[in-house]
């Protein structure tokens, strides 16, 4: 009984962490980037202020926007938070973790994207359509690489269940595994594409023609935009957390003892700080690439994942 209660508490702590830490990570990345580029930053808390501001603004809808346009922000937010309840961010004993393995998790994100793409087309502008078309293309090309990467990791852990995968890595003796290293590389490239970071997409751009994700959500305003932006920050956080859980899960809380939970939150904060720094290091020297170069970018991700899979069978 106590274990059930404990796991339910863990679940709620995790959802709270996911909701709050998403903007923090985004703020951290922006702050570091400002420092790197010699600009003054607005601090880690700026994304919170942005979201709060958007929530109290009026909503302006496009003339012929349908219910899909208005429903999408809520669904995207809901799907993202659901994903946050499933990924082992701070603990592996989440009661909702068995609800989806990694394949189902990818599908949950895909559903959020499906609706975002529909919303992009709903207003009936050229830019929304362009954003939808491109975003779906990038997602399409990322999918095989993602599956291959998942396949490689699941070869090592013999499972696709997320908490199981994290547990196997923490409990097994440390081994040099080229397969996991390649899978990680592939995963990073895919995560860059999926979360819309440079060099695939530029989240800070102000020119409609260079946007992918932003072009789809161009018509959003007020609380809808707040939800979309929030969900996007959570998504970045979740992909980082997923990478950490699959490849560097050490420090994550198990079933017992209880003090591991605050320790896990602390470790998570440290890991996320490092991930944020890595993102900045990757993004600062790079420019956004042409949309048709993304094919090769994701082809590379597929290649890494495949070499990982091959090296598992050939070398391990």
């Amino acid at each position: 009984m106590t274990t059930t209660l404990y796991s339910i508490i863990v679940e709620f702590v995790q959802i709270a962490v996911v909701l709050l830490a998403g903007p923090a990570l985004a703020g951290w990345v922006r702050m570091l980037k400002c420092r790197m580029q010699g600009r003054t930053s607005a601090g880690v808390l700026q994304p919170y202020r942005d979201i709060m501001k958007l929530f109290v603004k009026d909503v302006v809808l496009a003339e012929n926007a349908s219910w899909i346009f208005r429903f999408t922000p809520y669904l995207v937010f809901g799907a993202t938070v659901m994903a946050g309840a499933i990924i082992p961010v701070i603990s592996t004993v989440l009661p909702s973790a068995p609800a989806a393995d990694i394949i189902a998790l990818v599908a949950i994100f895909a559903m959020a994207r499906f609706f975002t793409a529909l919303a992009g087309m709903d207003a009936g502008t050229a830019f929304g359509g362009m954003g939808s078309s491109r975003e779906m293309t990038v997602a399409t090309l990322a999918e095989p690489a993602m599956l291959m990467s998942v396949f490689t990791v699941s070869l090592v852990s013999g499972s696709t269940s997320l908490s199981q995968m994290a547990q196997v890595v923490t409990t097994n003796p440390l081994m040099l595994r080229p397969s996991l290293a390649f899978a990680l590389l592939a995963f990073i490239l895919i995560a860059v594409a999926e979360t819309g970071r440079i060099p695939v997409d530029n989240p800070a751009t102000h020119l409609e023609l260079t946007m992918l994700h932003e072009a789809m959500t161009l018509e959003y305003s007020g609380r809808h935009l707040a939800l979309i932006e929030w969900a996007k920050m959570i998504k970045l956080f979740l992909y980082a957390a997923l990478g950490v859980a699959l490849f560097f899960p050490w420090g994550i809380a198990g079933a017992t003892p209880l003090w591991m939970l605050p320790a896990a939150v602390f470790y998570l904060a440290v890991k996320m700080a490092i991930v944020g720094a890595v993102i900045v290091l990757i993004e600062t020297p790079l420019a956004k690439m042409r949309i048709f170069r993304v094919t090769e970018f994701l082809g590379m991700a597929f290649l890494f994942a495949t070499i990982g899979m091959l090296s598992y069978f050939m070398l391990e």
Partner: peptide
């Protein structure tokens, strides 16, 4: 341990959050 999927939980979860 291998893999699991629960459509009811996902359905109810997403509906609840929405």
């Amino acid at each position: 341990v291998r893999a699991s999927y629960s459509a009811p939980v996902i359905f109810i979860g997403i509906t609840a959050v929405v």
